[in-house]
Write a protein that binds this DNA or RNA. Structure first.
Lengths: 349, 349
DNA sequence: CTGAAAGCGCTTACAG
DNA sequence: CTGAAAGCGCTTACAG
């Protein structure tokens, strides 16, 4: 093991008997290097244990080899603080780090406010400081056109995870409306006729798309208006309990509930219990997330499993391709899965 | 909002009518700047929306404003892949990101192999490339003297989270032996006389310390040798099931089990069920972690709650202090907590 | 208290 | 196919 620190491109050049420039070509896989020279340089690099200094590369006008992954600040912090875990973040890191590593990139994870004004300030700050080669926006930031415009203005490639079909960019998503539709059809097939959808925040485009998928299936099935109740949640337990409580207390209470996330699905379980309704016999529940708690819940929740890690990985891949001068933009849809567990069954009555 | 991109120190200097040097003094809170000049510069910075370029700062010989947080590669990846969540990582990010942000630092999270040879290679790689101002090592890396030596050799401050009392460094930890002792005493007080401790990997110093705390309490209580059974686990479910299975099948089966992590505690719950033993009536279980799944498990697990986020935050704080030229080294013990839930009770027989 | 100079380790045009 | 020059945006000594 070579213990000597701070080996520079100059050291490699000297050891290989070439110019600094040629070494640069080799480490950047540039053209115009004779095979013999390339090998000599590579040998010197290996022998000295040379690793290019990222800051210098960036300063030289090259790339930063940094991908910035941005997530919703308040929700992430809340989840962490409550010790609730945060599977979405875990899967972001999983998909993002492994993909970045593959290409010699580093992933920097950041939390940014949902409020547009401070979000803009925070994002400007971090991109000015880090100068990432690409920025990855997740919900709800992926729906924020001001953030997207800021990035465009600074000529930083942007990947929107959870955003559909916006032009000239990298959009990675799953078919949210389709997933909601599939969950709805499944409940219909089980025989349910009074369904409720506990929506998350309308700030999230995905929430809107799911509500839409839910509605369309019911309309197509020729169900009357009151078949599909929309409850206005905000992704949180307490608010969901309130809304579900009212719904279950009504005369024509729903026999099945689709929740926009796990926390609200737990709220459904909780509220059903308070109303003395057994799950799934008297109330079916489907969640729109599939975090670890879901599988351990009692009973284990039927849920839509999102391809989070895969979406983030794809976004990073396309961002890196773009940084390399290839055209990475496009729309990439990844498959979800409806995982049937123990909270869904035909209605009792 | 100033949309102009790439504002440099030169622009600020010009706007404020001072030299680049003076601006540098202001942004680095250096001495020797007249109040009036400082204010003029600060106004220019605010007006232009100037944010220093990190790469340039590093290149100029300054700090990188990067803290590298290192975690066990294989275990982290396994947890993520299994969709099991990873509360330790979440809490690392929570404590690390918030603390780093406070000081204008960025946290970079990295996975490094436990195997010393590739671990060394990966760590050299990433520090040569990123040049962080400090590196934070978690178990089991915090116990790896080669890694610590590598960092010392490169003059990069190192904080060991989970390492106790190593000289001349930043060590942050909780009293692992004390926590194991407290859990053990609690079981003894409940009336248990045949206890088992499912140990994690001996690669982890903390595992060894806990086993020690467990043994000492039993010895002090004058319990005979066979009172405290040590089961050799490896933190994983399957292996723990095997070991616990054997223990529960024995004639003098333990009436209480302390597991070195949640997964093995779940294994205890699972195995108890297979043996027709009810928890806590016929078997008490205490876990040495307190991840979200634990609170949702049936029954909810009694557990030692580790101050993970706080330890990481403290480590970052001390690393940043050291980077600033202050002496951050020392030993910092943070408090744990025994959270009593539903898996512990007096023994039945 | 303030500024002019040198240099960090690269890459990007530009020559040859 | 290869090299010499310039420059990226800062900070660190060094002058004054």
């Amino acid at each position: 093991m070579t213990r000597q620190a701070n080996i520079t491109i100059e050291d490699v050049a000297e050891a290989a008997g070439v110019s600094r420039q040629t070494v640069s070509r080799v480490i950047n896989n540039g053209p115009n290097v004779k095979q013999a020279v390339r090998e000599k340089v590579e040998a010197a690099i290996a022998q000295l244990g040379y690793v290019p200094n990222l800051s210098a590369r960036r300063m030289g006008g090259g790339k930063s080899y940094l991908i910035l992954a941005v997530n919703d600040r308040q929700r992430t912090l809340d989840n962490w603080q409550a010790g609730r875990g945060n599977d979405w973040v875990d899967q972001m890191l999983y998909g993002g780090m492994t993909e970045c590593e593959k290409h010699g990139y580093h992933l920097v994870f950041r939390l940014i406010d949902t409020d547009t004004e401070s979000g803009i300030a925070q994002l400007s700050q971090v991109i000015a400081s880090l100068r990432p080669d690409g920025v990855l926006l997740t919900p709800p930031h992926c729906d924020n056109e001001e953030l997207v415009a800021l990035l465009a203005n600074r000529s930083i490639p942007c990947a929107r995870v959870g955003q559909h079909d916006s032009a000239d960019q990298i959009n990675v998503f799953m078919d949210e409306a389709g997933a909601a539709a599939e969950a709805t059809r499944y409940l219909l097939e089980l025989g349910h006729r009074r369904l409720a959808f506990v929506a998350g925040s309308p700030e999230y485009g995905n929430s809107r798309r799911r509500v839409q998928g839910f509605r369309e299936v019911l309309a197509k099935a020729g169900q009357p208006e009151e078949t599909g109740l929309i409850l206005d949640g905000d992704f949180r337990f307490d608010r969901a309990v309130e809304e579900i409580d009212k719904a279950l207390a009504s005369e024509n209470r729903p026999t099945a509930i689709i929740a926009d996330n796990d926390e609200m699905a737990f709220a459904a379980l909780h509220t059903a219990d308070r109303h003395g309704l057994s799950v799934p016999e008297q109330l079916s529940v489907i969640s729109f997330e599939d975090t670890p708690g879901v599988r351990f819940s009692v009973p284990p929740l039927t849920a839509i499993k999102q391809p989070t890690a895969q979406m983030i990985a794809r976004a990073c891949e396309k961002l890196i391709a773009t940084a390399r001068g290839e055209n990475g933009s496009g729309n990439f849809e990844l498959p979800y899965e409806l995982v049937k567990r123990a909270t869904t069954a035909p209605p009792d009555d």
